[in-house]
C-alpha cells in the first residue's frame, strides 16, 4: 500500500510537469501565432508610417518657416544696404561741406594771381594811385568766384562766404589778419575758365593794369589750401 502510494506520487509529479509543459507551450505558441504577429507588425507599421507622416509634416512646416525667415533676412539686408548707402551719401555730403567750410585742406589745380604795388611811381602822382587797394582784391576774388572757383585764398588764408577784406592803411586785413603787399590770391577751379574770365577784354586784369598794378598770373597743377 505504501509502495503503491509512493509510485502514485511519482506519477503525479510526472503528470504535473507534463501538464505544465503542455499548457505553457500551448499558451506560448498561441500568444505568438503568425496571425497575431502579423497584426502586431501591421500595427507597428501603421504607427511608424504615422510617425513618418508627422515628421514629414513637421519638416514641411519647418521648411516654410525657414523660407519665411530667409525672406525676412533678405529684406533686412536690403534695408541695411540702403541705410549704408544713405550713410555713405551723408558722409560724402559732410566731407564736401567740411571742405567748403575749410575743416579739411583741399587740393586741386588752379591759378595764382600775384598783385604788386607798382615799382615806379612818377613824382607828380600820388602814391595812392599806385598801390593795391582792397577793392582790387574784391574785384579779383569776385571774378574768381563768379568764374566758378571752388576755393579762394589770399596769402594762404581761405576766403569763406562770410569773410571780409578791408583796407587798413598800407596793409589789407583778411578776416582781421593783416597782410602786406604783394598779395597772392590762389584759386582752385578749372584753370582754363578762371584764366579766360580773368583775362577778358576790359576785364579784371585790364582794369588792374590800368590802375598801375603789377599783375602776374600763374597756372599750377596742385594748389593746397
Amino acid at each position: 500500500m505504501k509502495r503503491m502510494r509512493r509510485s502514485q506520487f511519482l506519477y503525479a509529479c510526472v503528470f504535473l510537469v507534463l501538464g505544465f509543459l503542455l499548457a505553457f507551450n500551448y499558451k506560448f505558441t498561441s500568444s505568438s501565432s503568425p496571425a497575431q504577429i502579423n497584426k502586431q507588425t501591421w500595427q507597428e507599421d501603421f504607427n511608424y508610417k504615422q510617425q513618418l507622416n508627422e515628421l514629414e509634416e513637421q519638416n514641411k512646416q519647418l521648411r516654410s518657416e525657414l523660407n519665411s525667415i530667409r525672406q525676412e533676412i533678405r529684406t533686412m539686408e536690403e534695408e541695411l544696404s540702403q541705410d549704408t548707402d544713405m550713410m555713405k551719401n551723408l558722409v560724402q555730403m559732410k566731407n564736401n561741406l567740411q571742405k567748403l567750410t575749410g575743416d579739411f585742406p583741399i587740393y586741386g589745380e588752379g591759378v595764382i594771381i600775384t598783385l604788386r604795388d607798382a615799382d615806379y611811381i612818377p613824382r607828380e602822382d600820388h602814391a595812392n594811385q599806385y598801390i593795391v587797394h582792397d577793392r582790387h582784391i574784391h574785384q579779383v576774388v569776385n571774378e574768381l568766384f563768379s568764374a566758378g572757383a571752388k576755393a579762394v585764398a589770399i596769402n594762404g588764408q581761405r576766403i569763406y562766404r562770410n569773410s571780409y577784406i578791408s583796407c587798413v592803411g598800407p596793409v589789407i586785413s583778411v578776416d582781421g589778419t593783416p597782410y602786406p603787399a604783394p598779395f597772392v590770391i590762389s584759386a582752385i577751379g578749372d584753370q582754363k575758365i578762371l584764366d579766360t574770365s580773368l583775362n577778358l577784354q576790359n576785364g579784371v586784369i585790364d582794369m588792374l593794369v590800368q590802375e598801375n598794378i603789377e599783375v602776374a598770373i600763374e597756372k599750377q597743377s596742385t594748389i593746397e589750401m
Binding site: A12, C13, V14, F15, L16, G19, K27
Partner: peptide
C-alpha cells in the same frame, strides 16, 4: 492523484504569466 496533478500542472502552465 496523477489526474489531479495533471490538471494542476495545466492550470499553472496557463496561469503563469512569464513570457519567454
Amino acid at each position: 492523484l496523477p489526474a489531479l496533478f495533471l490538471i494542476i500542472g495545466l492550470c499553472i502552465g496557463i496561469l503563469t504569466n512569464v513570457s519567454i
